[in-house]
């Protein structure tokens, strides 16, 4: 009897606290994330769907979309391979300077995007280290696609490795060692044991890497040269249209990028929902 009486107020206060916390969190998320997202779409459709479609079908928009996809299609696989290689070396072997290597992988996170673009100008620009040589051989890096790719790789370099390292650390290498002892070749071990174990973290890393690669503005802006229809990626196209008083057009292109963000998130959520248990078992960051 007495237990029941005392349990009641506790349950009530708990429910109250819980409700308040949920309300607070959801309110914050709505105000802080949902509202800016909604703004993009509201502004994009302000002048109607017809204008929206025309803006997107313009030659410059299509060129920007193509370029953005191309840059991501080169940068993301390269960083994927790097991420796997680096994670393999760091989590499966002991060597001197391991901590330093880890710190270097995180370095691009703490470099301002402006600097990430500038460093390539210092290397490959006409006044840079390799500029005169490249110029003499007719190779263009800065203010052309290679420069955009390089800057994008720099910015997104840590994502895959960062997802993989904690996971592979916590998984340990027993399964892989067992596979080897049982006679599997290196590739067999990798494709049958390692890859299935890390695939979800790998996919997360790739999704984030890809989203960031397509959305990068600061670094890309420094190395782009802003030649319309040739070296402008989607984020640059957004800025350009905004600067031309074409607000509907700017937000239309922006909405495509937002849509991409939404698709990335939907894909992630779908994966979590479909393979939730499997992922939770190998959650990255869990020790």
């Amino acid at each position: 009897m007495s237990a029941l009486v005392s349990a009641r107020p506790v349950a009530w206060s708990r429910r109250l606290v819980r409700g308040a916390l949920v309300l607070l969190a959801v309110g914050f998320l709505a105000l802080f994330l949902l509202l800016p997202l909604a703004t993009v779409f509201v502004e994009a459709f302000r002048q109607g769907a017809a204008i929206y479609l025309t803006s997107i079908r313009q030659h410059e928009s299509l060129a920007a979309i193509r370029l953005t996809l191309l840059v991501a299609a080169i940068a993301v696989p390269l960083n994927l391979v790097f991420g796997v290689m680096a994670a393999w070396a760091i989590t499966r072997f002991d060597f001197r300077g391991k901590a330093l290597l880890g710190a270097f992988i995180d370095l691009p996170f703490s470099v301002s995007p402006v600097i990430s673009g500038l460093v390539y100008v210092l290397l490959f620009g006409a006044q840079g280290w390799f500029g005169p040589w490249l110029d003499a051989h007719g190779v263009r890096i800065i203010f052309a696609v290679p420069g955009l790719v390089l800057a994008t790789i720099f910015i997104t370099l840590p994502f895959v490795a960062r997802e993989l390292i904690p996971l592979m650390q916590s998984q340990g290498s027993e399964e892989e060692e067992a596979a080897r002892v049982l006679g599997a070749s290196g590739w067999q071990m990798f494709f049958r044991v390692t890859l299935p174990n890390i695939r979800w973290a790998l996919l997360y890393g790739v999704l984030l890497c890809n989203a960031r690669a397509m959305g990068e503005f600061g670094a890309v802006s420094v190395v782009s040269g802003h030649i319309r229809g040739l070296t402008t990626t989607m984020p640059l196209e957004v800025e350009m249209r905004y600067n031309e008083y074409d607000f509907a057009g700017a937000f239309a292109v922006a909405s495509l990028l937002a849509l991409l963000a939404l698709m990335t998130m939907a894909l992630k959520t779908l994966l979590e929902w479909r393979y939730g248990n499997e992922i939770a078992a190998h959650a990255p960051g869990g020790h």
Binding site: L33, P36, L37, P113, L208, A211, R212, M214, G215, E216, F217, G218, M234, P235, V238, A254, L257, A258, L260, A261, T264, M265, K268
Partner: peptide
């Protein structure tokens, strides 16, 4: 994840 994915 929106701020990751939305261009700055």
């Amino acid at each position: 994840d929106l701020p990751f994915a939305l261009p700055t």
